[in-house]
Simulated assay, not measured.
Amino acid sequence: MKIAIANDVPMAAEALRRVVASTTEHQVLWIARTGLEAVQLCAANRPDLILMDLNMPELDGVEATRLIMEQSPCAILVVTGQPQYNVNQVFRALGAGALDVTATPVLQGGAGGDAQLLAKIHTIDKLIRHSGGNQAMQPKGVNGQPPVPAAIHTLVAIGASTGGPAAVAAMLAGWTAPPDCAIVVVQHIDQHFADNFAKWLGEQLAMPVRVIADGDDLQPGTVLIAKSNDHLTLDQNGRLGYDAAPRDYAYRPSVDVFFHCVAQHWRGAAIGVLLTGMGRDGAEGLLAMRRAGHATVAQDQASSAVYGMPRAAAELDAAQLVLPLDRIGALLRSTTGAKP
């Protein structure tokens, strides 16, 4: 991959350059010292991936990401010092179109940081090269159709990737789900940042938000967030869990895996929503939900940060409706009976 670096701190930029140069499959295309320079260089010589810092002169990483995704879109990985202390900026960058976030490795003695960064780069490389996607394996389950858990009649299953945090927050803002409705969000995000995502999202919404532990039951009136790099599953009893298989699937946690579980096991009403994201994850699962008789919706191109996953769903005729983000929120409220 051709990789660019946007970082105004010379030691940090050199540390990133050395990590990239340590591999044979990647090369550094250019290094920008300001956010504005990154936007300009990307327009002139677009890389496969940009390692984007958050705090830079002229334009910060959030605004640089937004402009690049508007003008010269490419994959962006936020690489910044102590991202856990910059939660708001991180999620603004993810909302603007960044794929993921990781900490900046140090110049000396940073083997652990180097490995983590290279793992992120490898995953993004895989997503870029295989954006057609591998069909997700359906998780194993027990046959039979047990009744829906008494307290919950409607399940809203949401899948999102690039630009997803901001899209989920905007879609669910301003209303509270009724007590017979559960909401599950599968967002492509590293497990180490899932708790921060839940906390951030909870600050945006009127509903309670929490991460999912293995073995949890669906919770009425609550937004539940997948928090593992393993895939989120739902069994015939409405119980949530995690499964490492399929291990070679680039999208983790996979929207497809969870949507297939809903199609296979959920016997109440369900609404599948596929939001902005790179690649094709979720399209096959949304189609399975539609074939199982559930309502299915995909975000439209104009309101998507990256029109990859929703486009794939539209091409498969998996989505009954393709709508802008604000209309999806209105549809959920009217369908579930939720009050604004």
Rank of each mutant, 00 (worst) to 15 (best):
S334Q: 15
I212Q: 09
G308V: 07
R66A: 13
T335A: 15
L240C: 06
G95C: 09
G163C: 07
C74Y: 13
Q299I: 05
A21I: 11
T102A: 10
C261W: 12
P253R: 00
A313T: 04
E315C: 09
V90E: 00
G144K: 02
C42Q: 02
V211P: 11
L94N: 00
A43H: 09
P147S: 14
R66Y: 10
G277I: 08
Q301L: 06
S303H: 11
H231D: 10
P178H: 00
V28Q: 11
A244C: 14
G164E: 11
H153K: 15
S303V: 06
I271H: 06
T336W: 06
V39S: 11
T154Y: 04
D256K: 01
V20G: 03
G110M: 09
G110Y: 11
A245F: 13
L321W: 14
V168C: 00
K140P: 14
H265N: 13
Q301W: 02
M11C: 08
G293M: 02
G337W: 02
G282S: 01
P149C: 03
M69V: 03
M56Q: 05
A15P: 06
K140Q: 15
A6I: 04
T34M: 04
A305H: 06
A169W: 07
A21G: 05
S334E: 15
M1Y: 01
A312P: 08
T24F: 14
G159E: 08
G95H: 01
L172R: 01
F193S: 05
Q27E: 09
C261N: 05
Q116P: 05
V262R: 13
V184Q: 06
M309H: 00
A244T: 15
T176V: 13
N55P: 09
A298Y: 10
N55Q: 14
K120M: 09
I212G: 01
S161K: 02
V306C: 03
V78S: 09
Y307V: 04
L59M: 13
F259G: 06
R46L: 05
N7L: 06
D8Y: 06
P47W: 13
F259I: 10
D53L: 12
L274K: 01
H294C: 12
G202I: 00
V90I: 09
